[in-house]
Design a protein around this nucleic acid. Structure first.
Length: 1076
DNA sequence: ACCCGGTGTTTTTTT
DNA sequence: AACACCGGGT
């Protein structure tokens, strides 16, 4: 059967597409165009699949057709006969954004699926890796194209996978901006499963014939239509059986008798076909560009390079016909454009539309008119001018002005004034219009490939400067600057290293360790490095891998957090403090319910007491001086309850360790001799009990090496006190204090501005920055929603447009030469609750992001329940919990013992527990549980380890630095991290400094330091945004700008004007109901 | 024992 | 705005 097919289109679920992209109109327009087979597009979208299932019914193998009752009959539909019923084939486009070989890649791929089952499998595997398939018909995943292909092949061996519009600069496998130079670089060993590539609107077959490496791929041509009228502007002609398998096989084999060729628009129409400068009126083909070394003659800056140039650069042929498997291609001009030229009115005008409909009714489908209908028929039916136009088009007797630098190209059938003259004769129905000068067929490539080749030896295009020279790996101290080196080599006694943001704190720490181990031959077992978070410890571990000579040293090294260390110490000596080694750590919720139960108090009192207890544990002096005898008694009662239940809370973890070491000198001795070299990171954040703990690990001769920055102390509320770092500063002699003054992170602007904040009257030395940088951008937005929108759009703009659509709209001009990656962006908020709107906006813009928010996981009710269950099993002496669990899960003692034994022999995994005791689950718990099981699997299902990890981990431990995602987190969580581009959201008086809770005052100095921390996360671009109006706790608040904004010198900042109006309606919501 | 709806309350950062 | 809590219904 002879038919035309267009596989790549979109549904109304995709962003920036017509509302008419519903099955009914697709069916209608396929008939109007003369398409037999139409891709559904967007099969990853559940809403679209639902709609397709409702409105389509199975036809031939792997093909579907519109149910009769949905067919639109009363419009200008033509050829409404059964043999013209279009078929649908399940297809979808997926956008992958990821980093490979050090560059950001954005690749679009088209997937064909044989049935709905396969579609659902693909949907599932996307969701499984955290992809969002509901916000856009064309999902954006942080997934490597190769892995996407793998995923699709896993779903079904019968899928068909086609790299989409392969030359598009921003979004394709060969794209100049974020693609590869070969297909293999992208798909590696899986390239063998790729049989075809899509040429796209901006390219036609000959451009591919230039490249021998594309010989093995069939060329497919599709419309990528965003509205029904654009269907079939590019398409494929088949003569084969009408089934899914036979279509795929035909594409695979590209048999000339079965795949009759492609239909393409003229690629010259594209906005970026040739090279040049629109403003300078310079339009060049690749040869001319090369002759000028890519520099515009008029303005002297590099010209905007088009798609043809990219293709020529990757090409290796002068004679296109060396490619054997060439298929015919038919260049067309859309009928409406021809009519527009004839009528001399716009192609979207009413007149053209009326004309168009009339023609379809008389002459049949559009593609039939353009390609097949014999020219004499046009004349017979009374369309002589059209006859002439179509004939010229078919013979390629047309004039072409190539598009360049954002300007559309122009394809014309008639010359200027020619139409006027024709019109006069029109009434006479001339038989044949003579051409002024009959043209020869234009060459397939309109410049000399031979010349291009010759020029490449002497000419070249300007190199786009690749930013980010990665910091060189330094294996010895040679790579450190003078101060860093001095600090790292410190040997005797206590040392304090004052290190501002970006001055190489971690670097000094890691190099000191490697110096001690490699040069001074210190046994790594005698070194203790303490951090506050697991993340920081991991970071040090990773960096040490390159610095230490052998893996063994790294394993022997004691690299841990305060809490983890104390936990380990207490496990070893638990009996000395009245616990047995099975003790578990309780969380805040457990703490409160225990207090209520054992002390017979109300929840409110328990909560306030809990706070007081925490403070007492953090700060020993406070604990000893408790004026209130009653509270002290209650504290003792509480401690007694903990011992009785063989549990400990987070706060007393360190306290109990201190008590242990104080009461047992022989144990203390043991640790003193073990930890001969102690290093502490983020020393400004230690509290009294931690400082005391450190002192207990030292004897007179021992070496304490602490790094910190008093300006970055932000944990006062949990007992941290700068007095400890200040104490060292004041008591240590000068040669034991090192100050790192050179910042390798922030630009000069950012350093100066942030310095305005911590100044607070006293003199402070500037850090020296590496580069001057750009001004800090400040914006005011009407509401938190528009603030969020500003952030999302700015990111989109800076990324050069994640969505195809963006390039054509005002959002972005698509001229990102800097090559930002999504992981270069961070958005910081004072509170978690601010994040909601920002998440929403990022989602609406299809920008992948990660939120650093512990509550998301561990505070989920179901996870909490399971953790309690595990605690009860692991710690049988926790009788309060055990009784509750027995009752709740209707277990008797024997059953409970059985479970315990299973757990002891490590035969009980989290999965088992879920399956056995938590099987009646709500569907939305599924993902959380899956995550829980994954975490558990990482620890080999050792429940003790899992529990320890989950109770002692910090939320920043969740941060994945290298995924292609924007990071959204609190100011606090951002400490120690750096990003090229940083947004500080909600710069309002009340949020930062925080003062919305009248009962609890914040320390204004600490809030200033917090803002300082936020600002100094940025390397290049810092945005400070605020909302004039904001809803907090259901109340509308008008907050003044943060006083911190005023502190920044005006000449360091630039006020951005509000550029974007808020869009009202949320698309997908409304559209579902449109056709019901 | 569980689900619901209505009412009231919360009010930041986190090992 | 989101959540906890309570009480009444099943």
């Amino acid at each position: 059967m002879n038919f035309i097919a267009d596989f790549h289109i979109h549904s109304h679920f995709s962003i920036a597409t017509s509302k008419q992209l519903v099955p009914e109109y697709l069916d209608l327009w396929a008939r109007n165009k003369g398409l037999k087979v139409l891709g559904t597009g967007d099969f990853t979208h559940p809403g679209w699949i639902k709609e397709l299932k409702e409105k389509l019914e199975p036809a031939e193998q792997g093909l579907y057709k519109l149910k009769e009752k949905f067919r639109i009959k009363d419009e200008f539909s033509i050829a409404n006969t059964p043999e013209n019923e279009p078929r649908f084939i399940l297809t979808s486009e997926i956008s992958s954004i990821y980093k490979k070989n050090d560059r950001v890649r954005k690749v679009h791929n088209l997937i064909f699926a044989p049935d709905f089952k396969t579609v659902e499998k693909i949907q599932k595997s996307i969701t499984k890796i955290g992809g969002n398939i509901t916000s856009d018909g064309r999902p954006i995943l942080g997934l490597d194209s190769k892995h996407l292909l793998e995923m699709a092949l896993t779903a079904s061996g019968n899928i068909f996978f086609v790299p989409a519009h392969i030359w598009t600069p921003w979004f394709s496998v060969l794209g100049s901006k974020s693609g590869f130079d070969t297909i293999e670089e992208c798909y590696e060993d899986l390239t063998q499963y790729i049989y075809a590539v899509e040429t796209g609107l901006s390219a036609n077959a000959p451009m591919h014939w230039m490249c021998s490496f594309l010989d093995k791929f069939t060329l497919l041509s599709n419309s990528d239509a965003h509205s029904p009228e654009k269907l079939g502007r590019n398409a494929n002609i088949f003569n084969t059986e009408l089934t899914y398998n036979s279509i795929c096989n035909t594409i695979k084999n590209a048999d000339k008798n079965k795949f009759l060729g492609t239909i393409d628009l003229h690629p010259q129409e594209g906005k970026y076909h040739y090279d040049g400068h629109r403003k300078c009126n310079v339009l060049w083909n690749p040869v001319e560009t090369l002759k000028n070394n890519g520099i515009c003659k008029v303005c002297g800056t590099p010209v905007t390079v088009g798609v043809m140039n990219r293709a020529v650069r990757l090409s290796d042929r002068e004679n296109l016909f060396e490619r054997k498997n060439r298929l015919p291609f038919h260049s067309i001009i859309p009928l409406k454009e021809i009519l527009s030229e004839i009528n001399q009115v716009g192609p979207n005008s009413k007149k053209v539309h009326r004309n168009y409909i009339a023609l379809l009714e008389k002459l049949g489908p559009e593609l039939n008119i353009l390609l097949k209908l014999p020219i004499p028929i046009f004349r017979e039916k009374g369309f002589p001018i059209l006859a002439e136009a179509i004939e010229r088009m078919r013979k390629n007797h047309i004039s072409i002005k190539e598009g360049f630098d954002g300007e559309f190209g122009q394809i014309k059938v008639f010359k200027d004034n020619e139409i006027q003259n024709l019109k006069h004769k029109d009434s006479l129905f001339p038989n044949k219009i003579k051409e002024d000068s009959p043209k020869l067929d234009p060459p397939l490539i309109n410049f000399s490939l031979d010349e291009y080749r010759r020029l490449t030896s002497t000419h070249s295009l300007p190199k786009v400067e690749k930013k980010k020279s990665k910091p060189k790996k330094i294996v010895d101290l040679a790579g450190l600057n003078y101060e860093q080196k001095r600090a790292a080599k410190h040997l005797e006694g206590t040392a304090l290293i004052l290190a501002g943001p970006g001055t190489g704190k971690t670097r000094v720490l890691t190099h000191r360790i490697s110096y001690l181990v490699n040069i001074k031959n210190i046994n790594p077992e005698n070194i203790l490095a303490i951090t506050f978070t697991n993340k920081a410890a991991d970071e040090i571990r990773i960096r040490l891998k390159d610095l230490l000579n052998n893996e063994d040293s790294l394993k022997k090294l004691n690299l841990t957090t305060f809490h983890s260390l104390c936990y380990t110490i207490l496990k070893e000596h638990s009996y000395q403090i009245g616990l047995n080694p099975n003790f578990t750590i309780i969380d805040e919720k457990e703490k409160i319910s225990l207090m209520i139960e054992y002390m017979e108090i109300t929840k409110d009192i328990a909560k306030s007491l809990s706070l007081k207890f925490s403070q007492a544990f953090h700060n020993m002096e406070h604990f000893l001086n408790t004026e209130n005898i009653e509270i002290e008694e209650m504290l003792h009662e509480y401690q007694h309850t903990l011992i009785e239940n063989n549990i400990i809370d987070l706060d007393s973890l360190i306290y109990n360790t201190v008590i242990l070491l104080e009461d047992n000198p022989q144990i203390r001795e043991q640790y003193i001799s073990k930890f001969k070299w102690i290093l502490v990171d983020e020393f400004q954040d230690v509290n009294s009990i931690q400082f005391k703990f450190l002192k207990l690990l030292l004897d007179k001769s021992q070496n304490l090496f602490v790094i910190g920055d008093p300006n970055q102390a932000i944990y006062g509320f949990r007992g941290a006190d700068i007095k400890h770092i200040k104490y060292l500063k004041n008591t240590l002699s000068e040669e034991n204090i090192y100050e790192l003054k050179k910042s390798y992170r922030c630009s000069g602007y950012i350093l100066k501005a942030s310095n305005n904040l911590i100044e607070l009257g006293k003199k402070h030395k500037f850090l020296e920055g590496l580069k001057k940088g750009v001004k800090i951008k400040i914006t005011t937005n009407p509401s938190e929603k528009s603030e969020a929108e500003f952030i999302a759009r700015t990111i989109e703009k800076m990324m050069g447009g994640l969505r195809f659509f963006s390039i054509d709209s005002n959002i972005t001009k698509g001229n990102n030469e800097t090559g930002f990656s999504l992981s270069d962006f961070a958005i910081l908020c004072r509170t978690h609750s601010q994040m909601r709107h920002i998440e929403q906006s990022l989602e609406n813009h299809s920008i992948p992001f990660q939120v650093i928010n512990d509550n998301n996981f561990i505070n989920k009710a179901i996870i909490h329940e399971i953790l309690l269950f595990i605690k009860a099993i692991l710690n049988p002496d926790y009788s309060y919990l055990k009784n509750r669990i027995l009752k709740k899960y209707k277990l008797d003692n024997t059953a409970f013992l059985n479970i315990q034994n299973l757990a002891k022999s490590n035969k009980l995994s989290v999965t088992d527990i879920c399956n056995r005791y938590f099987h009646t689950l709500k569907s939305n718990d599924e993902n959380v549980l899956k995550k829980f099981q994954e975490i558990s699997a990482e620890f080999g299902n050792n429940l003790h380890q899992v529990l320890k990890y989950l109770t002692l981990k910090s939320e920043i431990d969740e941060y994945k630095p290298h995924t292609e995602e924007v990071t959204l987190m609190t100011f606090h969580a951002s400490k120690g991290l750096e990003f090229t581009n940083v947004f500080l959201a909600g710069c309002e008086d009340g949020l930062i400094p925080y003062s919305l809770n009248e009962n609890k005052k914040t320390d204004p100095m600490e809030e200033g330091r917090l803002f300082y921390v936020g600002m100094t996360r940025a390397k290049e671009n810092l945005f400070l945004s605020r909302a004039a109006n904001r809803f907090i706790h259901g109340r509308s608040l008008y907050l003044d700008p943060s006083p911190f904004l005023k502190k920044i010198d005006d000449e360091l900042t630039e006020i951005l004007k509000q550029q974007y109006k808020q869009k009202k309606e949320m698309k997908s919501q409304n559209q579902l109901t449109l056709f019901k």
